[in-house]
Nucleic acid binder design. Structure first.
Lengths: 205, 205
DNA sequence: TTATTTTTGTTAATCAATTAACAAATTAAT
DNA sequence: ATTAATTTGTTAATTGATTAACAAAAATAA
């Protein structure tokens, strides 16, 4: 099946998250303009996104929330379908562990954490066990992990990245800027808050 | 002067950050394709971005690093020109404080932190003082703060957001998804790692 | 001197994302 | 019944971002 545009996928994930708060009522409906307002986007965009996944609404009452969530679940792979690991259990690493795991909303499972600091290794953080980075190949292969989250900025992170990729990781999210050698076929995203801050500083007034 | 495209601003911030590691040598130069490789983008994009800010390179040796950093500084406002605050000093809040402050690279100054937890108030975190949220109007106005970073997902965050905006904040970065009422003229960005994870899970094979 | 190579600078073309426009469906009101 | 109001579904238009294409500049090699 044809892949959806990346931006649409991003919004589908956001629709699902905000809608899950509205799901209490079995029979609740939502209009495109209401869903749009929750995400601060244009209602046409909502309708277009839903059109792309083949979801139909009702001319009078809008879109059925429960059905929409179910279709988004199906479209963005079924829940718990992808496994991930996190590198680094410092402040940021721990924050992310607590934010995404255990969560009934996020369908990506965090299978393990890794660190280089002996003080952090062989402990559990909110249910996620932390191993020495040397265990990456073993654990990653064993659990069929495809996504890695990087939260440490050590100079020597490149060997860790290489080990992850060698072991089958296909997507990397890096929260600490820094040039990394990453093959072209790896899905890579970098988020550094400083970039966002500087962009914002430029545009406000 | 005409505003630059948002994506160009984002990349300028990234160019500056990676180049600052190359600045040691007073007279170092870099080619567009080398800078491009560091950011995993197309060299044409680098040249186009630099063209937009009116920076010229040398046909033989590329772009002068030091001069380029200076021009980016000038383009993205001068260093230390914008003030920010952070809401919440939990795990994520502390991680961000340590990541951006004090930093000679990020030109946005973190002026204060706020929390609702009495155990966290009136303490200093890596040099940033934490106040009770009731102090928002006073501190924000006093320091001419224009940017706020949200790291708490409390149900009652809307009044905090309203206080920030009333006190003059023009840009908000939200790290915890959740519908917020934000006026149209506020520059707003939301980053929830779960969205990124789900998008990635969809695209990798 | 005359090619050859390399890299910038810029326009044009392409691709992606958003928004506008409006027909079709449905209900409610007159 | 007819009109008005509302909202979806879809195509077309627009806007924004990226990439391709290539001339101009400068140095090097033949």
């Amino acid at each position: 099946m044809e892949k959806l545009p990346p931006k649409t996928v991003e919004r589908l994930s956001q629709y699902r998250r905000v809608l899950s708060k509205y799901e209490d009522d079995e029979n609740s409906y939502i209009f495109s303009h209401d869903l749009a307002r929750l995400l601060k986007i244009n209602p046409v965009q909502v309708r277009r996104d839903l059109m792309l996944i083949g979801f139909s609404g009702n001319y009078r009452s809008g879109y059925r929330v429960q059905e929409l969530i179910m279709l988004i679940n199906k479209t963005l792979k079924t829940p718990k379908s992808q496994n991930s690991v996190i590198i680094g259990v410092g402040r940021l690493g721990k924050a992310i562990i607590h934010h995404i795991y255990p969560s009934n909303v996020c369908p990506v499972t965090l299978k393990a954490a890794f660190d280089i600091d002996p003080a952090k290794i062989n402990k559990e953080y909110n249910g996620v066990f932390c191993y020495d980075v040397s265990k990456i190949p073993e654990i990653v292969k064993e659990n069929n992990v495809k996504i890695a989250i990087l939260t440490i900025s050590d100079e020597d992170i490149q060997p860790i990245v290489d080990a992850l990729i060698d072991s089958g990781v296909k997507g990397i999210i890096n929260y600490v800027a820094g040039p990394l050698k990453i093959p072209k076929d790896i899905y890579f995203k970098e988020y550094d808050i400083r970039t966002t801050l500087e962009e914002m500083a430029y545009f406000i007034e």
